[in-house]
Nucleic acid binder design. Structure first.
Lengths: 306, 306
DNA sequence: CTGTTAGCGCATTCAT
DNA sequence: ATGAATGCGCTAACAG
């Protein structure tokens, strides 16, 4: 009997097994923030890598939940992750990037209330849920402060439209703690065409206003920013300094000049989220309801001391 | 009764439903090629986007299958996608990038023989299975030819180690059809440190041997190549021309100079793969066993006419 | 310690 | 038409 099972490489039918044990060994992953963007930013990708590593080690799998854009004839648009939870397809859920979506937050709250295992990557939303947070506002303020210490006073900050809600806090803190600094925050819409708007911004704020430093929000923006500077013959860091956010360790090192960065350990955060979730599923008592990650400044070649 | 279901937002339990109907509405996605690389190349990401679009429109979900690196005490390392198929968790499977993994090909053949719905993205492996192919060798030869038409005779080609098996065909075709061209193919190991080896290659083959053009294999390499050239003070395209592969439409446009590219429609390919798979699952008769995609040359600013 | 059975929740079939 | 019974394949509980 045993050897027969071995020989035929028997694997139990997961429908039957799941029906019995009431578990699917599947974790849903839902990152909204605009269409298709799950696969677009280095941040999300690093999160996914971290999640994947941890989950697969514990024999869970990831189900990527996109927007529900199917031809659902009958039902009103219920988000897919909710649908899947009700269908018992998922043992847990990892969410990220709900910041700009108040409607979605309500749904999250509902799920959390119902005790379904959820971990949210981002700023704490619900007093009961678990979350992992990199402290977006704090590290942005820290970046401004770093540039200030290098002697910069007029600083351009590029922020994605979906993060506009964090801006007031950032500007307020900068104003309060660094009155000598003038911060120019610019909201970039996450459209296909990044280069042209960025060119105009650089012309206006570097050449025009006279900013001496720029803070882009991620690797994608940094690359385009570097290209734009090259095209406009604005040498980095002689004419303008760059301090970028780095989600993928070492990414800034590949470029020329090597980009100084504020390292946000997205991969570790993803892993952490997955681990927390699994412990929650197992019913363990979890002390920390919120894990906050610190970013690290990595000095390289793209900042000039004034 | 009807209204009760509506009110409680009833969703059928998928274990029971699956047990009955023998379908899971889940599609497995497996891209090997080294650890974590699923999320590393623009090519894979574009494929995933295309797959995701099509699948979610048809109410399927993607299960990302990583390597089986769990603590499997008991069983010998059976690949996870095989395990999942036997467990009836998947209705179909999309594979890509098995090129360097002969052992895995055998498994694929076995699955195909057993009539399990599979689509392979890459060069045809099994006479019975379905595949989507961008014709890697052909478009590389085409790129060489394009540079030849611009007057280049000594051309450096950067190829990932995992694609080494395609090299003989490429060099043979170039030798036969373009005897006046000398091709210098370099295999890059997909390690963390891309910049240093690339710097040495550029020094040796551009400054040393005197190559006038480089063909990098994708967006990642192109960015680093540009940085290396900037650092070594090798102007593009004045001193060296670049013709890159572009998987994400418009990616080359964001850089400076705008990179001329051979566009491989990875997104459409992913969509195609998903569609083919779904039709296969539905039991439709499919005429085309193999869909081959043509790449398109997009002239931009990074090639100089000699 | 091995063998039998009940029931997980649904869809399908058969009987009313 | 509506309702009750069956079985999908497994596991856990129970009986021998």
């Amino acid at each position: 009997m045993q050897e027969a099972m071995e020989f035929y490489q028997y694997e139990p039918n997961q429908f039957a097994r799941g029906l019995m044990k009431q578990e699917s060994k599947m974790i849903g992953i839902y990152f909204p923030e605009g269409r298709g963007s799950l696969f677009d930013s280095a941040y999300n990708l690093e999160l996914l890598k971290g999640i994947e590593e941890t989950l697969s080690y514990q024999n869970y799998s990831m189900v990527l939940l996109g927007e529900n854009r199917g031809f659902s004839l009958r039902k009103q648009q219920i988000p897919r992750y909710l649908e899947y939870i009700k269908q018992k397809r998922l043992d847990g859920l990892i969410l990220s990037g709900l910041s700009g979506q108040p409607a979605r937050k309500e749904v999250l709250q509902q799920i959390v209330e119902e005790q379904f295992p959820v971990v949210y990557i981002g700023k704490r939303i619900h007093e009961k849920g678990f979350n992992i947070y990199a402290q977006f506002e704090q590290y942005h303020v820290k970046m401004v402060d770093t540039l200030r210490q290098y002697g910069h006073r007029k600083i351009l900050m590029l922020i994605h439209g979906s993060h506009s809600n964090y801006l007031p806090e950032i500007t307020a803190q900068v104003k309060e703690r660094m009155p000598e600094v003038t911060l120019y925050p610019i909201l970039l819409d996450a459209g296909e065409e990044l280069r042209e708007p960025l060119t105009r911004v650089v012309e206006e704020y570097i050449s025009g206003v006279g900013c001496t430093a720029v803070i882009p929000e991620g690797a994608e923006d940094t690359q385009v920013l570097l290209s734009v500077c090259a095209e406009l013959q604005i040498p980095v860091p002689e004419r303008v300094s760059i301090l970028s956010v780095e989600h993928q360790r070492g990414a800034g090192q590949l470029l020329h000049p090597k980009i100084s960065a504020c390292y946000v350990p997205a991969r570790a955060m993803g892993g952490s989220a997955a681990e927390l979730l699994i412990r929650h599923i197992r019913g363990e008592v979890i002390e920390a309801k919120s894990i906050e990650y610190e970013s690290v400044f990595i000095p390289r070649d793209s900042i000039r001391r004034l």
